[in-house]
Design a protein around this nucleic acid. Structure first.
Lengths: 336, 336
DNA sequence: GTAATATTTGGCAGCGCTGCCAAAATTGTG
DNA sequence: CACAATTTTGGCAGCGCTGCCAAATATTAC
């Protein structure tokens, strides 16, 4: 059955051909297709029929060139393997798709040079707007973005200088809130597990806020483990094991995200370390995996989807506030 | 400091302006920028300097229109919240980025109508190729794709008719292998937990392969729980709870993916159901979360990154096999 | 009926770039 | 030094579409 005249060289169907087929001018066809300007009902039907029959697919490359204005929104994130970012994308899509915009996603692997590269190549497609995770960029990136005249929103982190719009929350404050919780609960010999700071400036800021509060309370972060790019569960589990081997007396460990924390929790389960009586565990982000663990994880629920949605909305709007703070929320589970 | 003459209306820098600035023809500038054709070293330097100074960013929309051939590869997947798909994307990026191609990602939410819509709008951007998850599509999608003349690879599932290239493995066989393992280990009263089949044809095929083997062995799938779109951990945990309430005598449960399975495992931990002596748990996909659980999960490791990479490579190549099978692997943990 | 108004349609320039080919500049040869 | 061979450069058409405006047609008023 599937035996088409498949041997290519099919010349693309263009507006001109539709025009010829219908016997109407190109502008008319174009107006019908974009539902813009006026035309009779009869014309509309004839055009649609021909479009259908010829299998015409408008060429938006030509359209965008002619009208100067694409429906593309560039989104630049460090990774897709941290659920934070798919959530962010869902939020953005929620705001963008209904108004006919398409997202183009680029991943930087937590590398600012890479970020610069992908932004440069996205710029060549003249997106209508940019959403970028974080406020840390190379100088060149910042300059390109500014000169491009494209509206840009930086997301997830309000600690620092933004280029245009910033939507997120204070990572530093989120770290501080976490620390206050542990301190209040009486923990004093505290460890920290997170990614290498060079990778993730947001994790670094959280740690800064965290350790400042711990210090204020007269304690200090007794142990830290910073890890490269391994699987989070594995890394969290192994980090906690190493840490406890060195400092068996720790009474709480703060993990820079829930994936790490669940790894830590797994280590405790596997080694009969009772949580939280022997060791308290706290995560960050409020992922389901932590929420539905045998002992629900204490964590900070971050407004990822909202940040994506509001960021997208703002970047598409005209004026508006420059910095929007979206609140996060401490969620006490059974691990602290 | 950041006080630029920000009040827009900045007219875009074009090739023509660079040309005027350097005092060379547009074609020459274009050749230098694309490093294509011949020009002197001196010319190159002059051009690069001007480009830098003017902050010129080539307009690929115009370039693509003129040269007919974009560097965009469309990737269509059902979700970003199942790690399978980010893995797929990483694989594709691995193959594509080094040869200068950019990926444009669209998410369908497991909805074939939505898939049709996003493919249609991507087609308007004339991508160089398409990578699509699965071989299930609406008739109209299939027709559009065929007529487009764009090379397309369907990924992750070899059970069914492909349009052009198919890279993946037999989901049905993967289900069968899982069943054989459980049967061999002596389990007979088996439950199944997975997503509503309408959402996920690949899960359905695995289930078919699975239940056929179970039936062959003279047993049958005693219980099934099919769930909508909730968080996986939560859904897996709740589903197992409901299932055991109905049929306390089950001796094994097969989860359609590791996220669900970890939810199930959590239920067992929290309720002191000893695994696997009282109840065996098996997942699918080979995620880290299962691998580093207190009891490593028995699962099937699927070659997601490889599928993405090989799919991308094949779709960019000329001829080549039409169906490529990438093997999966059963990984026995401590839960069966 | 005609004039005035509203609706629908077509023509043409041009978006910013590339491909093609011819013109100009450079180098090599005897 | 003239001539051929080679390298470097510029001009122009056109990719497929949209925006603008004028032309054609339909509708309404008187």
């Amino acid at each position: 059955m599937d035996q088409d005249d498949d041997h290519k060289q099919r010349t693309e169907v263009t507006l001109r051909e539709v025009s010829a087929a219908v016997g109407l001018g190109m502008s008319t066809i174009s107006r019908v297709l974009r539902n813009h300007g006026s035309f009779s009902k009869a014309t509309r039907d004839r055009v649609m029929k021909a479009v259908e029959e010829l299998g015409y697919v408008p060429n938006r490359i030509a359209g965008t060139l002619a009208s100067s204005g694409s429906n593309l929104v560039g989104i630049v994130i460090p990774s897709l393997h941290n659920i934070v970012f798919p959530d962010l994308l869902s939020g953005a899509a929620l705001a963008l798709n209904p108004i006919g915009f398409q997202t183009v996603i680029a991943v930087t692997d937590y590398d600012l040079e890479q970020e610069q590269k992908v932004i440069q190549s996205m710029l060549a497609w003249r997106p209508a707007a940019f959403l970028v995770a974080g406020v840390e960029h190379t100088e060149r990136t910042r300059a390109m973005l500014k000169n491009s005249g494209v509206r840009i929103a930086e997301l997830l982190d309000t600690d620092g200088e933004g280029i245009d719009i910033v939507v997120g929350f204070s990572q530093r404050e989120a770290g501080a809130v976490s620390a206050r919780h542990l301190i209040e609960r009486g923990y004093r010999r505290i460890g920290y597990v997170g990614p290498e700071f060079a990778f993730d400036p947001r994790a670094r800021k959280r740690f800064e806020g965290f350790s400042a509060v711990v210090a204020e309370a007269g304690a200090s972060v007794a142990e830290t483990e910073l890890m490269g790019r391994t699987s989070s569960t594995e890394a969290g589990r192994a980090a906690l094991e190493r840490m406890l081997a060195r400092s068996p007396g720790l009474d709480a460990v703060y993990f820079s995200n829930d994936d790490f924390a669940v790894g830590g929790l797994f280590h405790c389960f596997a080694n009969n370390i009772s949580v939280p009586s022997k060791l308290a565990i706290m995560g960050f982000n409020g992922l389901d995996i932590g929420r539905f663990a045998p002992q629900p994880l204490t964590t900070v629920r971050t407004p990822r989807t909202e940040v994506g949605e509001i960021g997208a909305r703002m970047v598409m709007a005209q004026g508006g506030a420059k910095v929007v703070d979206i609140p996060f929320e401490l969620v006490r589970g059974a691990t602290t």
